[in-house]
Design a protein around this nucleic acid. Structure first.
Lengths: 124, 124
DNA sequence: CTGGATCCCTATCGATACTG
DNA sequence: CAGTATCGATAGGGATCCAG
C-alpha cells in the first residue's frame, strides 16, 4: 500500500484527510453516529446507549451532526414532543467508511484493555 | 447497512469504536501517518508536508505514534544525527483503514471549500 | 537536524440546574 | 421527553526559545 487512495500529499489531500478524521474524532461523535445507526433514534434513547454522556454535550453533538447533514432531525408533535434522529445517506456512508477503523481497532486491541495511549504520559 | 460490522452497541463495541476514532482524531495525527506513509521519513521532511505544524507538537505526535507502535523510529548516527520514521504493519493497516474515510470526505466535500463545521458556530 | 522546556491561551468537556 | 444556560476545570495546541 502506497497510500495511493489518498492522492498526492501536497497539502490539500492531506488537509482533507485531517478534516475528515478530526470531524469524526471529536468526543462522542462517532459513538452517537453508531447509536443512531443502530436505531437509537430518540434523545433519551441515544443517551442511554452512550453511558456517561451529558445532555448538553449530546445536544451539541446532535446539532453539529445535523449541521453537517450527517443526521436528520424530525419533530413529531405528540403529547410531549418527540424528536427522531436518523442517519442521512451521507451519515450512513460515513458510518460505513468508519467500519474498517473499528475492525482495525478490534484486531489490535481486542485482547488487552486500555492499550491505546492517547497521551505519551501527560504534559503536566 | 445496519452497522452489523460494529457488533452490538451495548457498550464495549461502542467504546472501542470511540477509542479508535479518537485515537486517530487528534490534531495532526492522521496527517502525520499519511505523510510517513508517503515516505516523508525525516522530521523536517514530515514537517514540510504538514504546513503549519510546530516542532513541539510534531515531536509529541511522533512519540505518541511510536508509543502505540504505529510507527518506528530509527536513529542513524551520521554527522548530525538522522532519524527515520517508518510505518509499522499496525500503522500501515491503520492508514489503509482510514482510506474509506478519506474517500468519503472527498465525495461529499470535494467541490466546496470549508463545508464541515466542527463547532456549531463558536462559544464566545 | 532533531527535538526539549516553557508559557499561555483557548476550546472542549463535565456537572449542575432550569425550562417548554 | 428534549433540550438550554451557566460555570468551572482541564488539557490540548501554538509560539518561542534553547540544546544535543
Amino acid at each position: 500500500m502506497d497510500s495511493s487512495q489518498f492522492g498526492d500529499i501536497d497539502d490539500e489531500s492531506c488537509r482533507n484527510f485531517e478534516a475528515a478524521v478530526v470531524l469524526v474524532g471529536r468526543r462522542w461523535t462517532a459513538a452517537i453516529l453508531l447509536a443512531i445507526g443502530r436505531h437509537a433514534e430518540r434523545f433519551t434513547d441515544i443517551r442511554r446507549h452512550l453511558n456517561g454522556i451529558t445532555d448538553p454535550v449530546l445536544a451539541q453533538r446532535l446539532k453539529e451532526l445535523e449541521g453537517n447533514n450527517l443526521i436528520s432531525r424530525t419533530v413529531i408533535p405528540t403529547t410531549p414532543v418527540q424528536v427522531r434522529y436518523e442517519l442521512t445517506e451521507r451519515g450512513r456512508e460515513l458510518l460505513a467508511g468508519l467500519a474498517p477503523l473499528n475492525l482495525w481497532y478490534q484486531k489490535w486491541h481486542a485482547a488487552d484493555r486500555a492499550p491505546v495511549t492517547p497521551g505519551t504520559g501527560g504534559p503536566s
